[in-house]
């Protein structure tokens, strides 16, 4: 239904507005503004790409805008070599952490939206608050806890951490989304003899796709980009990509071309997710977290 609204909204505006000179001028200005803003937004990208294709001796902060005098894949290859192992770590980390926190959030959201009970609001608030804590504040207790649980230094520990701190936001998004699904639908299912889980599986889950898209995009980006946990609770062979990216720079000599190439490579997966799922992201937002 969300999708329909988005599509419908395109039609009437064009049919109503007359195609006068004034209208055309307006459109022209609109596109100029949008193009201008796009260029401003893309300036940093240009800089990253240009630097990535330079060799180290061409890299200097005073010539940062110049085109490389000769293109080279050297920096990208070097960055790729060094980032490859941690790329797989990040994949192994991000997939289960995203999926599990999404499913857990969905179940929680289902309970909070459809199975209200005494103190539900309080519990929800308590869960939600977890979203806002500064993570540096829990670092030392977290490390001690994970060591106690024999999870320290492994990807499993990091996955658990990301699942836990992802719960508040996933619960929030799903709860708001499910609140919009008519309760009568669930009640009807209940009268037909459906149980808690069968209602979830057959009534709620099939309607959840837009919310899952939002949650997956959000969690994927957050976990992929996270650095602080990644550096403190992993060991050498379980480092995620952001940590490897930092390690590209030495404490003495920074090879900016490799740095920028590495930054570009690290950002690729999340960029792809945004480009491929971008349109669903807006629809999901529309259907989910927007209340009114």
């Amino acid at each position: 239904m969300a999708v329909q609204q988005a599509v419908v909204s395109h039609l009437p505006a064009t049919s109503v507005t007359p195609k006068t000179v004034q209208y055309r001028l307006g459109r022209f200005v609109l596109y100029i503004i949008l193009l201008g803003l796009s260029i401003l937004f893309l300036i940093p990208v240009y800089m990253v790409l240009v630097t990535s294709f330079k060799s180290l001796d061409q890299v200097s902060i005073s010539t940062m805008w110049d085109f490389p005098s000769r293109f080279t894949w050297e920096s990208i290859r070097k960055a790729a070599d060094q980032l490859a192992p941690s790329f797989f770590n990040s994949v192994v980390l991000v997939l289960p952490a995203t999926i599990i926190s999404a499913i857990a959030g969905s179940l929680n959201g289902y309970v909070f939206a459809k199975w209200r009970f005494r103190g539900a609001n309080l519990l929800f608030t308590l869960i939600l608050f977890g979203m806002f804590i500064p993570y540096q504040a829990v670092l030392i207790p977290l490390v001690k806890f994970l060591q106690w649980a024999d999870l320290y230094g492994s990807l499993n520990g990091l996955i658990l951490t990301h699942i836990v701190y992802g719960l508040p936001i996933t619960t929030l998004i799903f709860r708001n989304y499910y609140a919009k699904i008519p309760t009568e639908l669930v009640e009807a299912g209940l009268l037909d003899g459906g149980g808690f889980f069968s209602l979830y599986l057959y009534v709620i889950l099939p309607l959840s796709v837009p919310a899952f898209v939002v949650v997956i995009i959000w969690q994927f980006t957050q976990i992929w980009n996270e650095f602080l946990f990644g550096v403190t609770i992993t060991s050498v062979d379980s480092r995620p990509m952001t940590v490897a990216l930092q390690n590209l720079s030495g404490s003495q000599i920074v090879e900016w071309n490799v740095q920028m190439a590495g930054a570009f490579l690290t950002a690729l997966p999340t960029l792809l997710v945004y480009i491929i799922l971008g349109r669903y992201f807006i629809r999901g937002l529309l259907a989910g977290s927007v209340k009114g």
Binding site: L139, I140, V143, K144, L146, Q147, Y152, G153, V231, T232, I233, S235, V236, V243, Q246, N247, L248, S249, G250, S251
Partner: peptide, 23 residues
């Protein structure tokens, strides 16, 4: 095993956390 970044503070953060946790 290397930890870079943050003018050496990242390294110290990891080292202190690991030593405290007995690892």
């Amino acid at each position: 095993a290397t930890v870079a970044g943050g003018s050496g503070v990242n390294f110290k953060a990891v080292l202190v956390s690991r030593m405290l946790g007995g690892d």
